[in-house]
Nucleic acid binder design. Structure first.
Length: 224
DNA sequence: ACCCAGGGTCATA
DNA sequence: TATGACCATGGG
């Protein structure tokens, strides 16, 4: 039986050469906006929206707040569900303002920040954890459809369940003390690798993951 | 011409 | 609590 750290190391060596890019260096507000825009949406579409926001110089809570609904909708349109997402961004901006600004909000400790985010329209468990992990840079393990798909196929985790917090508990307990160093880095990189891996190897309709080293562990892998 | 993507909300039973 | 409709654009 493979531990979660085993899988992590495997993913790490598999994708290190690929030159994967993620968000750690990006502006926290841009990351936050991306977390909301990417909901059930292909990342390429989000890129287009981010591009437009950049061109409009809308990447601060203060500036975005001055935009009308119509202006914001047009900027965000390529990411799909643009009216919903405008509402969601608006709700987040309201929260930030109530908490003394964006910086102040993200500086709030995770155990206090998470409920605040979850109480905001358009922010569920995954988006909240993604914001805490990648924008606020505080420890949070993000679970998404990819995570459950990959590990479900590997036969690891609460396989029969699709409950977010069951999966999250499984990872937090499983990683527990098995790592050294800052858990923020492990959590952030782990989820990033899962997403990257799934994009390349684990299509939704495919019965199992594609031709990767994890296939050796997959119970559905064809005998080699 | 489909199929679906790094979810979340709301209505119904 | 557990499903299902709905959101909506762009890439494969």
């Amino acid at each position: 039986m493979q531990t979660l750290i085993d899988v992590y190391r495997q993913l790490d060596v598999m994708h290190a050469w690929r030159g994967w890019h993620w968000w750690p260096d990006a502006d926290p507000f841009e990351v936050t906006v991306g977390c909301i825009l990417v909901q059930n949406t292909a990342w390429t579409n989000v890129e287009h929206a981010l591009q437009r926001l950049r061109a409009a110089n809308a990447f601060s809570a203060a500036v975005m707040d001055t935009l009308s609904d119509n202006e914001l909708e047009e900027l965000v349109r390529p990411s799909g569900q643009y009216r919903q997402k405008t509402r969601k961004l608006r709700a987040f901006l309201d929260l930030a303002r109530k908490r003394g600004g964006f910086e102040s909000l993200l500086a709030t400790p995770a155990n206090e920040l998470r409920p605040l985010l979850l109480g905001t329209f358009g922010i569920g468990p995954e988006t909240a954890d993604a914001i805490i992990c990648y924008a606020a840079r505080q420890p949070a393990f993000v679970i998404d459809a990819y995570t459950m798909r990959i590990f479900g196929r590997l036969g690891i985790g609460p396989v029969k369940s699709s409950d977010y917090h069951e999966w999250q508990r499984f990872f937090l307990e499983g990683l527990g003390d098995a790592h050294d160093g800052d858990p923020r880095d492990l959590f952030a990189r782990y989820h990033a690798l899962v997403v990257l891996h799934a994009k390349h190897f684990c299509r939704k309709r495919a019965p199992r993951c594609g031709d990767c080293s994890l296939a050796a562990w997959c119970p559905f892998a064809e005998p080699g």
